[in-house]
Design a protein around this nucleic acid. Structure first.
Lengths: 96, 96
DNA sequence: GTATATAGTTACCAATGGGTAACCAGTTTC
DNA sequence: GAAACTGGTTACCCATTGGTAACTATATAC
């Protein structure tokens, strides 16, 4: 649970699930509202936990690509199940 | 996700999944390490979110019984899936 | 040489989360 | 009448989380 803790991790992982490879600035734009400091920190966290990879591309200017590892991709189903539990939970409350 | 946030909710829910009905002092003893303040606060949270019920029993001395609602019981499978993701994740890292 | 792009880092601040310890009020037992 | 049970509440404190804003450094285009 600690591995997935924090306000932004699910959002970042979800974005990477949809896009395969993204650069830092891409993520900054796609993950709405995140500050560069937080994005940097969360990416470092997830790289340490081997959910994502960070590869420097020696273009000019230099770019950095972030992508999910195989372990990272397994989070996909988990996000789906959490989401479907959430909607089921709301429906259960609504229909009681 | 906010509904299940906090250090103790999964632990309390897990304990209630195993026991059906528990009193405040029972939970304080079974949820290892929790302080009465935190238990009280988490129970209030979950009662508000209709995951558990709180029923006063007019014994002497008075006791209070906490139990899962139907909505609360649906958290069971979710806990299982989070747990199995966790072990699968650890195995994936170990065997790489 | 000025603006803009790349990918971050740094300093500072506020709110939240969670912990400890003590306390309260009623009731029963010794 | 003192202790121990019931179910909490209160006051205080610290660490972590997350936010804002500014800054760094390199390189390209204009």
């Amino acid at each position: 649970m600690e591995i997935l803790s924090g306000k932004w991790k699910f959002h970042i992982l979800g974005t990477l699930l949809l896009n395969e490879k993204l650069r830092f600035m891409d993520l900054l734009r796609e993950v709405e509202g995140i500050a560069p400091k937080m994005l940097s920190k969360e990416l470092q966290d997830m790289e340490m936990n081997q959910l994502i990879t960070r590869t420097i591309v020696h273009t000019k200017p230099i770019t950095v690509e972030y992508a999910l590892t195989e372990a990272g991709k397994t989070v996909g189903p988990l996000i789906d199940e959490l989401a479907s539990w959430g909607t089921a939970y709301r429906n259960a409350l609504f229909h009681q």
